[in-house]
């Protein structure tokens, strides 16, 4: 039976094995390039890993490079600070939205969400002018990590806000009402009732916003020049500035995508809801 075979489990598994190979192929190839010596790169492409000829020189060279170390540190600082900042602010905002009768809150909610939809290229120009134009003495936001940390809120804050809104809504009101009756302040309620219960949601929020901030390129490349450059801009420089050191380029790219790949399994279930703003539950 032809139909029986087409519907069979064997074929389905084979199909998905092939699909997985197709998905992983480019990444695997990049890994191979990153662990091969320059001499082994060219010629007939082989997808087999020759363990004996494997070299970590590219990674060593990249990690020993002070410029790259700075980029990496910047990325870590910016992504982590942004994720923490965004999670805290969004938790407060979500709590306010959920528990207080704020005037016009549906419109407010909608406006907050639209911030994530805006095409970043469109706002590069005004942001650049604002970042370079607003000065305190010699200091401006341009080329500072603080600038990036604040700016990344524009896409991460709406996302975190939306995600945490659902989580705070799900915490029974009776719990914080009971605490208020016992004489607790709003701050106490937030730290002793809401925060512990929202922790799993906060973890997902933190991880995803961290990844989004880590992955960002366009703003970082335009609004920094030397001091606050991030790893993504470093990766782009490898092509435009240093030319064709493919091994090191691959090593940097591997380091860039590693964190996201590592947390993939943890947040996998939330990615779809996250990327579609909950319009579709994954």
């Amino acid at each position: 039976m032809k139909r029986g075979f087409l519907q069979s489990r064997l074929l389905t598994v084979l199909f998905w094995l092939a699909m997985s190979a197709l998905t992983l192929l480019p990444v695997w190839w990049m890994f191979l390039v990153s662990v091969r010596s320059r001499a082994d790169l060219f010629g007939k492409p082989s997808f087999l890993l020759d363990v004996s000829a494997m070299t970590w020189d590219n990674y060593a060279a990249v990690l020993a490079n002070p410029t790259f170390q700075k980029y990496m540190t910047n990325s870590l600082i910016v992504a982590t600070s942004n994720a923490v900042l965004v999670s805290v602010l969004a938790l407060l905002a979500a709590y306010a939205m959920s528990r207080f009768a704020l005037a016009g809150k549906d419109n407010l909610f909608f406006w907050v969400l639209t911030n994530r939809m805006a095409p970043p290229a469109v706002f590069l120009l005004p942001l650049f002018l604002m970042f370079t134009g607003i000065k305190l003495g010699d200091w401006s936001l341009f080329d500072t990590r603080l600038g990036l940390i604040l700016l990344y809120c524009v896409f991460n804050l709406p996302f975190a806000f939306w995600l945490l809104q659902g989580i705070v809504d799900a915490i029974p009101r009776e719990l914080d009402e009971a605490a208020y009756v016992d004489g607790a302040s709003t701050f106490t309620v937030l730290t002793t009732v809401i925060f512990p219960l929202a922790r799993p949601g906060l973890a997902v929020t933190g991880i995803l916003t961290w990844v989004f901030a880590w992955n960002e390129y366009l703003f970082a490349s335009t609004l920094t020049s030397v001091e606050a450059r991030t790893i993504t801009t470093g990766l782009a420089e490898f092509v435009t500035v240093t030319g064709t050191n493919w091994g090191q380029l691959a090593a940097v790219a591997m380091l860039t995508l590693a964190p996201a790949a590592l947390v993939l399994a943890l947040v996998q279930r939330h990615i779809v809801a996250g990327l579609t703003f909950g319009a579709v539950k994954g």
Partner: peptide
């Protein structure tokens, strides 16, 4: 199958460039 969604776009570009 979900992996590409999480990779930084700039790294996706690098991957395909290679």
């Amino acid at each position: 199958h979900t992996l590409p969604l999480m990779i930084a776009p700039i790294a996706v570009g690098a991957t395909w460039r290679l």
